[in-house]
Design a protein around this nucleic acid. Structure first.
Length: 802
RNA sequence: GGGAGCUUAGCUCAGUUGGUAGAGCAUAUGCCUUACAAGCAUAGGGUCAUCGGUUCGACCCCGGUAGCUCCCACCA
């Protein structure tokens, strides 16, 4: 057995340990049918730029769970993936190269995307490896890979054939900057400064004042609404009967007439209580258009300009059009007043552009009619922390649109569909031909209408439409290891941050429900964010990501970052304090090193197979404390509370083992001639058990250091080639009597130390008497401990108060 | 406007069956102790946001209020 060096060199050691793990394939997935399976659905990071410390922390927390389960005897299926297709990646490429996707041939742009994505993936992978992640890279997947494309297209075709997915020409959320349809989940809200214009519309010989923030949409006004209970307008409807011809309102400038209708949705106290319904100003306009069966006019074109049909403003961009209309209205004295307001508008989360609603033909997945089933599925999943389920429920209940899955973009998975040139009926690719790009491959069949000419769909899928099948991607990999679907689905656990409950979690649940009629995973582990300060997310754009994760690892070591990342409470945001990280981690890592050094130096002649006939009471105490801590850690980790489990380990290690137990048995270990050889063996047995098990708990947090200590001190005793392949003890019931006995000893030591400190004495100073207060039932154990206690207190005499 | 979380020592936070308030950091004082001065010991420091209720007893359970944070809605 080798001895540990005087100081621990984390940076050097970590590299060596990772090399050791690689060489010995420590984390390679092996499916042992005698062990239960624990599968983790890890977020494939979006390849949209470099990762920051926030990503690192939440991934690390989940990684600790993987390690924990492995050491509890599970087959841990822990794959990693990259979400490398879609708009985020496209935007990254556009930003890095300065090109715009629509200015290039699609194949050329996609090639650029592949190159960029590859570069970042290598960077990501290196980073995860530098953090000591125990995933098996043989299980890796990428959402742009051919196999993923196949599964994603297959998922779509199945849903379309089961009428869960459908194509429809209808108003859709549209980003004029990215020039694509988007889904409700991609909306952000932003407060913007705007102007509320009160405009005079014509009403017979009189006028009707209507307030709007979007005068540029006057051309597309299809009717005016007032609330039926609004006293101001009731008289306008009097005597017209029902159904009567509604009053007509004349739109200014354009001078066409639209009906005046009533709807309960109109807020009486907003503006003048009369609202213009344009196609489309907002989502309420869409609802009204459907409910009241209104016509629609195309006002805004997909590229963000006003339609050619609109007089005065044709071809102008939206903001310019607004300006021009306002100018014309003012010129004609049609504006009664205008008030500056700040109001919330929906913007596209990726680019911040105000979202429009324009009619377009898109593919959707039905979620609106399945809300109840989706909510039930949410109930079946165990959410950690529990209250995170609220976000899911809240989202499902407030859904307004079916999930639009087609995007008019380039770097994504093609929609495997062609349309009949004559009747526009969609035809689907054959499953065995997937993956397929309909632009490159012709459809060879004949349409039911007899036509044989087909037009390919040029759109691609929403990124989430693919990343929502990660359980299926994982299953596909698992099958290669001989795991059957019934043993794999639902997966054990999904881990993710709370910000993507409405996207990733929701979509995955929906797809799982539609494909398999069951939940995708049993547990959802929802991590919090790492914030720079309250309310401020870490991001490059805010410039508060002072250090890159790579730099932090290089400077402070992965174990330091990992130990600190384990401070967080599950689901709760934490603030990253570099000083605190450095101090607390370094302290623990050093302490663990020094105490291990001490323990190992007393194990030269130790034989783990030999259990001393008599284990002394104080040794039984630290063994039992260790067992207690293991059980408590298990309890916390089963609930994904890694921070609480770490605290349990810290308390045992620091307070009980280092501060008290080692101080008590030190002399017994050094001087068997004074304390007895069998007594020394008892202590050896206890320190070995305690250190090994503490290392096993810490192994999930600081895998490098614990492995190094294990390899250089404990491996010869334990046999396994890595501490990460050992299993945690499974202690039976805890003996509380012996724990109580430990508390008595600790109290006595504390009293003794207090006395010495108050008298400015060294801890080694001799004192006349040390006093132990205890119940009489502990008398026998105390007598057995007297030699130890005398040694650690340096008291001439031990007095007892029973 | 609806919902969730938080409010405990100067700072960061624990406190999971309701029974005398805890840790780390910081501060002060002392201690070279056969692992560790990259250490150890001891101490000071809290009307547990606030008001009310239940209870023999409340940081904990219930209700109200305030502040902070987040999610959702608000887009005429």
């Amino acid at each position: 057995m080798r001895e540990l060096e005087k100081y621990y060199d984390g940076l050097k050691t970590e590299k060596e340990m990772r090399e050791y793990w690689r060489e010995n394939k420590i984390y390679d997935f092996v499916y042992d049918k005698n062990k239960p399976l624990y599968s983790i659905d890890t977020p494939p990071p979006t390849v949209s730029g470099s990762l920051h410390i926030g990503h690192i922390f939440s991934y690390t927390q989940a990684e600790m769970i993987a390690r924990y389960r492995r050491m509890r005897g599970y087959n841990v299926f822990y794959p990693f993936g990259f979400d490398d297709n879609g708009l985020p990646s496209e935007r990254l490429v556009e930003k890095e190269t300065g090109v715009k996707a629509y200015n290039l041939p699609r194949s050329e742009f996609n090639k650029m995307c592949m190159e960029t994505v590859k570069k970042y993936e290598d960077e990501f992978k290196e980073l995860w490896q530098a953090m000591g992640f125990s995933c098996d890279w043989n299980l890796q997947y990428a959402t742009i890979s051919p196999n993923t494309q196949k599964l994603s297209q297959k998922s779509f075709i199945e849903l379309a054939k089961n009428n869960r997915a459908y194509i429809k020409e209808s108003p859709v959320l549209w980003c004029t900057e990215c020039q694509t349809s988007i889904a409700q989940a991609e909306l952000d809200s932003k407060d913007i400064d705007s102007c509320f214009y009160h405009i005079n519309f014509g009403l017979g010989d009189s006028v009707l004042e209507i307030a709007t923030t979007r005068p540029e949409l006057l051309y597309s006004v299809v009717c005016i609404f007032v609330n039926p209970n609004d006293e101001r307008y009731k008289k306008l409807f009097a005597g017209r009967g029902d159904p009567g011809a509604p009053p007509k309102v004349k739109v200014p400038l354009y001078n066409f007439e639209v009906p005046l209708l009533t709807d309960e949705k109109v807020a009486i106290d907003k503006g003048t209580g009369a609202v213009m319904c344009a196609t489309f100003g907002d989502s309420t306009d869409v609802e009204w258009t459907e409910q009241h069966n209104l016509e629609y006019k195309k006002a805004i074109m997909p590229y963000g300009k006003i339609s050619d049909e609109a007089e005065f403003i044709a071809g102008l961009r939206i903001k310019a059009a607004r300006k021009e209309i306002v100018r014309l209205l003012e010129e004609n004295n049609l504006i009664v007043k205008s008030e500056n307001i700040s109001h919330a508008v929906s913007v596209h989360e990726r680019c911040g552009t105000e979202v429009e609603i324009i009619p377009s033909r898109q593919w959707y997945i039905d979620v609106m009619s399945k809300k109840e089933e989706l909510l039930k599925a949410g109930d079946k999943i165990k959410w950690y922390p529990e209250h995170m389920k609220n976000r899911y429920v809240n989202w499902v209940e407030n859904l307004k649109w079916d999930w639009c899955i087609s995007r008019q973009r380039y770097f994504g998975i093609p929609i495997p569909v062609w349309y009949c040139e004559k009747c526009e009926t969609p035809v689907f690719a054959e499953i065995e031909n997937l993956p397929i790009n309909p632009i490159e491959t012709k459809y060879t069949g004949v349409c039911s209408c007899g036509c044989a000419e087909f037009i390919p769909d040029k759109a691609v899928f929403d990124t989430w439409a693919t990343s929502s099948i990660t359980p299926q991607l994982n299953l596909d990999t698992a099958k290669k290891y001989g795991i059957e679907e019934k043993d794999f689905m639902p997966m054990s656990m999904r881990t993710q941050a709370h910000e993507i409950i409405r996207t990733w979690a929701f979509y995955t649940i929906a797809k799982s429900l539609y494909h398999t009629n069951q939940i995708p995973w049993f547990d959802a582990m929802i991590c919090g964010f790492v914030l720079a300060k309250p309310g401020e997310k870490i991001s490059k754009s805010k410039g508060n990501a002072k250090f890159s994760p790579q730099e932090l690892i290089k400077q402070y070591s992965a174990d330091s970052l990992r130990y600190y990342a384990a401070t967080a409470r599950l689901g709760t945001d934490m603030y990253f304090d570099i000083q605190e990280m450095q101090d607390s981690s370094k302290r623990l890592i050093t302490k663990l090193w020094n105490s291990s050094k001490f323990v190992l130096s007393h194990l030269e002649d130790f034989d783990p197979k030999y259990k001393p006939e008599k284990i002394l009471p104080v040794d039984r105490w630290i063994i039992e404390r260790t067992n207690e801590a293991i059980l408590e850690s298990v309890k916390w980790l089963d609930e994904y509370e890694i921070g609480m489990a770490r605290k349990v380990a810290d308390d045992l290690f620091w307070k009980d083992l280092c501060d008290n137990y080692i101080e008590i048995v030190k002399e017994r270990l050094y001087q068997p001639e004074k304390h007895g050889y069998e007594e020394r063996k008892s202590a050896q047995y206890a320190i070995y058990y305690c250190l090994f098990n503490i290392l096993k708990i810490y192994a999930i947090y600081i895998p490098h250091e614990t492995e190094y200590i294990y390899l250089n001190g404990l491996k010869d005793f334990a046999g396994e080639i890595s501490i990460h392949l050992t299993e945690w003890e499974k202690p039976a019931e805890i003996d509380s009597k012996i724990l109580e006995f430990g508390d008595i000893l600790k109290q006595a030591i504390s009293d003794m130390r207090k006395y010495k400190t108050e008298n400015n004495l060294s801890m080694r100073a001799e004192i006349d008497e040390a006093v132990i207060k205890a119940k009489p039932e502990f008398k026998a154990w105390l007598i057995e401990t007297e030699k130890d206690f005398t040694a650690c207190s340096h008291a001439k005499k031990i007095a007892y108060e029973f």
